[in-house]
């Protein structure tokens, strides 16, 4: 019958989308090719020099700072994401649920500049926090929470929180209430149920969410640019500096490849961790 999906029809229907994603694939290939280029400013010959040049204490510190901030931000985001997911799934009123969804989702979607303005107004030297503390006489000089690691950390937690909450919500929906009721009827306390029943059931979802959040935070650019000043050199910023004042394009490409590699390793590690821990539960 004519409704059968023929090969040519399938190809004709998917071709536009494939053309649309082609520049992205081209960009992925290009950045890889540039990272092994023999010249700094154009693609010519092959060399691993761009990678060798990155083996400096300076770049090592940048990688370490990036991993550390991304890790702390991921832990903080997960600590708040699980309770938020519980709250979101237990709200009865559709209006409350919808409002909470929007509040959580907005930071991911909204123009990052607007959010950076918000943090500057909140935490800046004459911002809400400092003027409140000063008017109560708690502090005399403003405390600096911006343009250092604290500011970047807050921004990272805020923008990555939605990426953690929504996958966890779907795994929370998958938990059958019978498990909880069984544990409760056997006399387990709320904390006991949480650690012995809920968390093991959620584990694959938790690792999945955490690895996405980590990858997102490790490759953050706008937040450290806007909230970190010049002082918090995360990898995104370091890569930009290689492009813009230094014109070291092959070096930037190599640093980019390292960033992609680091995030991929983390995601694979999280998937592996999820697998071995869930095997332990089954046994």
């Amino acid at each position: 019958m004519s409704l059968q999906l023929t090969k040519s029809k399938a190809l004709a229907f998917s071709l536009p989308a494939l053309i649309a994603i082609l520049p992205f694939l081209g960009a992925c290939f290009y950045i890889f090719r540039f990272s092994i280029s023999g010249e700094q400013s154009r693609i010519e010959g092959f060399s691993i020099q761009p990678y060798v040049d990155l083996m400096t204490p300076y770049f090592g510190r940048t990688v370490w700072l990036t991993l550390r901030l991304a890790f702390i931000a991921t832990i903080l985001a997960m600590l708040m994401a699980v309770p938020l997911a519980f709250l979101l799934t237990s709200l009865r009123s559709p209006f409350a649920r919808r409002s909470l969804t929007i509040v959580i989702l907005l930071p991911l979607i909204l123009n990052l500049l607007v959010q950076a303005y918000g943090w500057i107004l909140l935490l800046g030297p004459s911002g809400v926090l400092n003027s409140t503390l000063r008017s109560f006489g708690i502090i005399e000089r403003p405390i600096f929470l911006l343009f250092n690691e604290t500011g970047v950390l807050l921004g990272l937690v805020q923008t990555s929180l939605p990426l953690a909450v929504f996958p966890i919500v779907s795994s929370v929906r998958g938990i059958s209430r019978e498990h909880l009721e069984a544990a409760s009827s056997l006399g387990a306390s709320h904390w006991r149920i949480f650690f012995d029943v809920t968390v093991p059931l959620l584990r694959p979802g938790l690792f999945g969410a955490a690895s996405i959040v980590f990858a997102f935070n490790a490759s953050a650019f706008a937040i450290p640019l806007l909230l970190g000043g010049r002082r918090v050199q995360m990898m995104g910023i370091a890569i930009r500096d290689m492009i813009s004042p230094l014109f070291n394009w092959s070096g930037a490409a190599a640093a980019g490849m390292i960033l992609i590699f680091v995030t991929m390793i983390t995601m694979l590690f999280a998937a592996w961790l999820a697998r071995i821990t869930s095997e332990k539960v089954e046994r």
């Binding site: 938020l84 607007v114 303005y117 918000g118 809400v128 929180l161």
Partner: peptide
């Protein structure tokens, strides 16, 4: 509840202050 409120504040405070 406390952690969820922290999450809501972190998400919404910047927008509210702006």
């Amino acid at each position: 509840i406390l952690l969820a409120i922290c999450g809501i504040l972190i998400s919404s405070l910047p927008v509210i202050v702006v």
